[in-house]
Design a protein around this nucleic acid. Structure first.
Lengths: 133, 133
DNA sequence: TATTAAAAGAAAATAATTATCCTTTAAGGG
DNA sequence: CCCTTAAAGGATAATTATTTTCTTTTAATA
């Protein structure tokens, strides 16, 4: 298990064992729901409180260490903050993949057409993965 | 106020006064949260139950009459089902606009690259509208 | 090693959503 | 038109999700 102490500290987060484990799970799994994260954490910390999960998720979001991904017709998952990217979701097995799609020209055109100062783009493509088709 | 009886019936929904009002509000406002919908409905129906709002929203979604729009860092809003489109959201005033963006080539390329059978695309661009900049 | 602000855990509180149960009503058939 | 009935509405309870509070423990650093 890699040591993520510095990653946390760079985001002004104390490196507690619980946070190191959350970080490790996020690195390993890529995307995870509150529910599943709690289940996995319980295996490592016998008496961890669900409040600890929520408090950490919220603080980590505030400190831009992680981000929520809101998926249509499914529960939110959380991921480590990385460079902007889109998501590909399987509607059957719920797998979530990060994909790199260039939206620059769409953003530019839309900004101009609607006089919006666009700061974030969020694209989720949903369907069936190869296995589930 | 237009009569939406047939619109509802086409989706196998009984045309109750409450549903006609919800439909009218959706047509007029375009996008609305549960909370605001409830407040607006209370003005027309003195003793409407919040359960009625939720039950109708859920049934209307099941029957594809409306759809949920999950917005990053904000509450979900609901809209009447229309042809596929994207959304432009102001992070300050929370205005939500429907925009038409051609994602066909992105969908095709991604389908091929990842062997996914993509069924839905969901793009939300967030930033500041002209007024809020 | 001692100090202290922050984090963890337990439990209570709050918020959001759904279910239950009884009353009312939309819809369609005679 | 009335009658019948399945479905919908309203009130409220129950459930689920999330946040808060409070006390104990601990990471960070001096």
């Amino acid at each position: 298990m890699i040591n993520y102490t510095n990653n946390l500290r760079e985001h002004n987060l104390k490196a507690t064992p619980q946070r190191l484990a959350i970080t490790d799970i996020l690195y390993t799994k890529g995307h995870i729901s509150v529910e599943v994260l709690y289940e996995m954490m319980q295996k490592k910390f016998y008496s961890i409180s669900l409040a600890t999960i929520y408090k950490n998720i919220n603080l980590m979001i505030e400190n831009s260490f992680i981000q929520e991904v809101k998926i249509p017709n499914a529960k939110s998952v959380y991921e480590l903050t990385k460079e902007e990217h889109s998501h590909l979701v399987c509607q059957k097995c719920n797998e979530v993949l990060d994909i790199k799609i260039d939206l620059d020209s769409i953003v530019t055109k839309t900004s101009d057409a609607y006089h919006f100062n666009i700061k974030n783009s969020n694209l989720i493509l949903s369907g069936l993965c190869q296995n589930c088709q």
